[in-house]
Simulated assay, not measured.
Amino acid sequence: MRAEWEALAQPAEQIATGQSVGLPVPGWSGAAFPPWRALHGRLCRIEPLAIEAHGAQLFDALHQMPGGANWTYLSHGPFAKLEDWLAWMRGSIVQDDPQFYAIVDVADGAAIGLCSYLRIAPADGCIEVGFLNFSPRLQRSRQATEAMYLMMRNAFELGYRRYEWKCDAQNEPSVRAALRLGFTFEGLFRQARTNKGRNRDTAWFSILDHEWPARRRALEGWLADANFDDQGRQLRSLADFAACHEHER
């Protein structure tokens, strides 16, 4: 356990008292609170969540999976009727944190997923991505990867030092997605909360600012048109690109 701790810990130095402390962060004055604005990609857009633009479309898109499987690990939903979903949206879009967005397919303008920034701490330089809900059309698509890339890129450009991903430890697709996207698993918070009357152990993942350049190059390489054939099939995996950039900064 100590070896794992030391492998994850950031560099430190010893001060006059003989104690070890973290290294100084020169010129640190905090990150910027994320402005509620659209993020534009080639395949998708991240748009501030809006009832008129996204409400009905997202209700239909996110209620297609049998048994509402895409809602199992979320603290809200599924919703029996459109009015209930719109009421949830009204209460959510007035908040600064979480800050909700719709994921929109550039090809036809359809809203096909939901995401957010949350636990936004500009003074500490820490921000989390969460409340992810992908429709069947968005799941395992290039748009899904691009959406997560756009959210990451925006956060680091705003000056954040730490980008977090947390999920129910039983949510295997979310765990796999975090690892695929280049997040580092940091640990398991046992009995962190209850969700829909059940225990939730929370798995924590992160990407740090000095890790981002290599993650960015891997994601951009994978997303490039040259990495896909005429049938839209990938030629190289994201793991392959990540391995090529593993030791870069």
Rank of each mutant, 00 (worst) to 15 (best):
A110Y: 08
A214L: 03
P213M: 07
Q139A: 13
G197A: 01
L235T: 12
Y149T: 09
G232P: 09
T145R: 00
S116I: 05
A218S: 13
P173Q: 06
A107R: 12
E157T: 07
N199I: 10
D230S: 15
V175S: 09
R233G: 10
N195E: 11
R153S: 11
Q170F: 07
Q143R: 14
F183A: 04
E164I: 12
A110C: 10
R190T: 11
A111W: 04
A169P: 00
R140N: 13
R215W: 06
G159P: 10
S116G: 08
M148E: 09
S135N: 02
A243Q: 15
I120C: 00
N227P: 06
G130H: 03
A192D: 04
L208Y: 12
L223C: 05
Q191G: 09
I112G: 00
F131D: 09
E186Q: 15
E186W: 08
A147D: 01
F183K: 00
L138H: 05
I120P: 01
M148R: 12
A144E: 00
W222A: 02
L158H: 02
R176T: 09
Q170G: 01
G159A: 11
S206K: 00
R119N: 09
S141C: 02
R140V: 04
L223A: 04
T184C: 09
A144Q: 03
F131Q: 15
A218H: 11
A243M: 08
A192K: 06
F228P: 07
I127G: 07
A123H: 14
D229N: 14
A144S: 05
R119M: 06
C115N: 10
R193G: 08
E164S: 12
M151W: 09
R140G: 04
L238A: 08
L208T: 13
A178K: 02
D240L: 03
I207M: 02
A224F: 10
R162K: 14
T184G: 05
R142S: 01
D124G: 11
S141N: 03
V175L: 14
